[in-house]
Design a protein around this nucleic acid. Structure first.
Lengths: 227, 227
DNA sequence: CTACGGTTTGATGTATGCAAGAAACGATGG
DNA sequence: CCATCGTTTCTTGCATACATCAAACCGTAG
């Protein structure tokens, strides 16, 4: 589950990943300032590489840099989250379509095994394992599209969604587990049938359903917090 | 035609845009080294802001930074270009669909006027004006989707496509002019009819056709260069 | 009590100096 | 003549010092 984005550019990206992980860990509440000197002390480096890292994170949408003022943890608005899910739907639908066109590729077998494992995890009510498998399914699908630029944009998108904070809650819905696996199977069936059009539609439908679930969940969770 | 991306973050982005413009101007051939000190002298600033700028451009895919070696103008491979056009098709199709759902919005009138102007430009064989209008059409469509994250990803995508180098050649095909406008009209008709499904399909078709044209053009251009 | 202006403070933005490493160059041995 | 190894040189990578600016603070006047 470590290294979600998969971008380890040698030794440089290590710092970026560490800072990103720190920001996403919830140690900084949304809107909190992220001081350059504090991070520099934390990671025992100078401000210069920290600055570059923060610029990257700003580009990823994780933090907001107000010039001459400071860097702050960015809390995405509900609207932005909806927008990001629309994009997710678009990109993952595209991936499903492309994968369907490719024919029999090794990624298909990985996806097959994934749904099998998902069934086992669902049967044993292993929410953590199930969430991991869901993540793996989506990422394998993206990788299977064989489009490196799609992967790049998808990674950026998922970073913007602050993956850790949002998506992992899906597994907390026991009812959602079977539904999700069923939708995964539907997508796979379309891909196997080389129906790229149907595969795209099925994937879009799945992403849309998941996002709706997450969004209503977030709303009720927020209401619970308020009450 | 300046400021293609529209991202002028106060005074900071100015340098970024200038460096990007310089890199895209063809003054550096693909693969050429982009020295930090040279850029620093060119823009009369220190190496520090130049470094940050180059990191951004690397993130945009315009340059490649080899650690401890240098920064080099990145020549996208043909495959990458194809991948980017696939993404373009996906994103612009999504935008057309979203715009169709929105109903009557001011962007629609802008698009209407755009095709009118395009006809005029085509009639007078004003290739430059036509190219400008084509660009404006696509960007208005993206903006009309009312999805800020889509705009961000689209801008990044267009930067990666090294817009100046590739797309502006479209207008050099006299035959393509009318075809393109016709496809624009088809998309607009679907949007007016609130057929978001058809709008997306029409837009995808248009982007695909344009990309095919550009890619074959690039191939023949390369062959001409070689002969 | 409130509004306003000067000051202080703390942050970022930039410039510069030094260290480290990779590629190019040349000398040397075969 | 060619391969190889040491050296040189140019680059980036990082650390530090200074400049700059925004926001908070406080004292004062109304």
């Amino acid at each position: 589950m470590e290294n979600l984005t998969g971008d380890t550019h040698g030794s440089e990206g290590a710092l970026l990943d560490r800072v990103r992980h720190l920001v996403l860990s919830g140690r900084f509440p949304p809107g909190a300032p992220v001081s350059e000197v504090l991070l520099a002390q934390e990671f025992e480096v100078s401000r210069t590489p920290i600055r570059e890292t923060l610029k990257q994170l700003q580009h990823e949408g994780l933090v907001e840099i107000r010039p001459k003022v400071g860097t702050f943890v960015r809390e995405p608005t509900r609207r932005e989250i909806v927008e990001l899910f629309q994009l997710k739907e678009c990109l993952e639908g595209m991936a499903a379509g492309l994968l369907a066109r490719r024919g029999p590729v090794p990624e298909l077998e990985i996806l097959e095994r994934n749904v099998e494992e998902s069934d086992k995890a669902a049967a044993s009510q292993d929410a953590a394992r199930y969430a991991e498998l869901v993540h793996e399914f989506h990422r394998t699908l993206i990788l299977g599209a064989d489009n490196s630029k799609l992967v790049e944009h998808y990674d950026r998108l998922m970073n913007q969604l602050a993956y850790h904070r949002l998506v992992l809650r899906t597994a907390e819905h026991p009812g959602r587990i079977t539904t999700s696996t069923g939708e995964h199977r539907a997508v796979l069936a379309m891909i196997r049938a080389k129906d790229h059009f149907g595969a795209e539609a099925a994937m879009r439908n799945h992403v849309y359903a998941s996002s709706r679930e997450l969004l209503t969940d977030a709303r009720t969770a927020a209401e619970h917090t308020l009450s």
